[in-house]
């Protein structure tokens, strides 16, 4: 069932496209979730098709979901803090510390 992987590839590159084009920090985060999700699918599919007797892919996905949750929580906290300071979350405007 190669098509699982093809779909996840499309999903991943949709995420890439969103990551490099969007201005909104939350939209970028959404794109990031898409990419992460595509990778999760890959792990699960490889585990199931190629090594059905083992659980590495399964557990990797499980932990990845947990880490994604943590990462999202922190990212959103940061974004809200940025919003409080500069009243928007446009990635081009977050340059106070750059210069």
């Amino acid at each position: 069932m190669i098509y699982y992987v093809v779909v996840s590839t499309l999903m991943f590159f949709a995420g890439v496209y969103g990551f490099v084009t969007r201005h909104n920090l939350l939209a970028i985060l959404i794109s990031l979730e898409l990419m992460l999700n595509a990778v999760d699918i890959n792990f699960v599919v490889f585990n199931r098709y190629l090594f059905p007797g083992q659980l590495e892919g399964f557990f990797f996905t499980l932990f990845a979901v947990a880490i994604a949750a943590a990462e999202t929580a922190i990212a959103i906290a940061i974004i809200i803090n940025i919003y409080r300071n500069i009243r928007n979350i446009n990635v081009d405007n977050v340059d106070k510390m750059k210069y």
């Binding site: 909104n24 929580a73 959103i76 919003y83 979350i89």
Partner: peptide
Amino acid sequence: ILVLFVFAILLTS
């Protein structure tokens, strides 16, 4: 996660 997203979106836009 999605609920968090929706909260954040509603807070910031």
